[in-house]
Design a protein around this nucleic acid. Sequence first.
DNA 1: ATAATACATGACATCCTGTCACATTGCGAC
DNA 2: GTCGCAATGTGACAGGATGTCATGTATTAT
Lengths: 208, 208
Amino acid sequence: MPTATFFRLPEEKRKRLIDACWSEMTRVRFTDASINRIITAARIPRGSFYQYFEDKEDLIRYLLEDMREYFVSLLRNILIEARGDLFALPLAAYDRFIGQRGHTDPMLSLFLKLLRLNQGMDLQNFMGGPEQFLPDELWEAVDTVKLRRGSREYADQVFHLSCAVLAFAIVETLHDPAQTTQIREMTQIRMDLLRYGGAAEGYKEEPT
Amino acid sequence: MPTATFFRLPEEKRKRLIDACWSEMTRVRFTDASINRIITAARIPRGSFYQYFEDKEDLIRYLLEDMREYFVSLLRNILIEARGDLFALPLAAYDRFIGQRGHTDPMLSLFLKLLRLNQGMDLQNFMGGPEQFLPDELWEAVDTVKLRRGSREYADQVFHLSCAVLAFAIVETLHDPAQTTQIREMTQIRMDLLRYGGAAEGYKEEPT
DNA sequence: ATAATACATGACATCCTGTCACATTGCGAC
DNA sequence: GTCGCAATGTGACAGGATGTCATGTATTAT
């Protein structure tokens, strides 16, 4: 977490630093991001940076936290539009993110760049803490009647896998936009897999 | 890929280098691995290293390739024992890897360390190339009758998701062994999800 | 034996990170 | 106002890492 000092900084200076961070983060992978370049761009002396952040990871975590909140709220809207159907979420989100929208919404645009550069950046882990993937805000919008089991734990599992599917689809698409339609189809198949199961009829002894 | 020169190296020297690599790779994350430390440990001059490998990534890719082959052959055996049931694979693999076996098999032990250190290291991507996840060797052992659709593409999807489930389970377990039983249960639920689908009965208009 | 080719090697330029001693500022007490 | 303490600001520095390159040395072909 950033130091208290960081939050007491004059607005303008803080913004300069954050902008420089985003600029670097959307230019190269986390691994290759350079504090040096950031502070040079932001015209912040080296010593000061370390007064605000522990190190690079600290900085990245902070930036990502903001992003996470925004992203969750986006998903929430999409989930509501989908009438709380968790299985419909990935494809709806995919269409929203990859379509025109993704390029006009600046925050989303940042997010997509991050996702591409860092190959999905472990979207599942990014969404939630270690013990809970499905954020409260989303859980509220889930229609549990549509799930085989209505427990939050179950929704959690579904969401986790859904995130994997979504992240993969987005990363692949950004990597090779020409394949958008194939990737969308693949995503559809995957979500059907999650929804209806992938076992052949003869081998489906339904569990409780 | 390593240079031709590398493969012409005297056995002993090559082994010294590879051992040092593994030692470094199982000690810290890919990101933090240091060529410096490796060449010092292997008593190889700096210049020589760059005669053999392009850079750190080149080295890692090479080590991983070996590992991949071994890992695929392991999975193949497990899949055969499971009578070609792709949906049974993750749990069977989990039990095999996490149980005693994982600690006695040196290669597997390396693999698990790698997996933990690099948080799953994108197991799906690791398993197969960009356009095919399910390796030929495994595909041969799949009993397609047990799948809703028998195509290789479909098996590919199932396998991809299964890998995600397996990787997650392993990483979590290594991270907190005390939770082994919970994680195993969770994995079971996830595979049931893939097998039978997660939608409530009322909402399952079965597709073809 | 000689030339050409392959290989070995470590000094170097360049970049990066985290720290620290010291300078500067802000602010309440007097 | 000014004294003094706490909070901030700052850049030089130590320690390390990476990739290159000029210069050796060995090997092979003819």
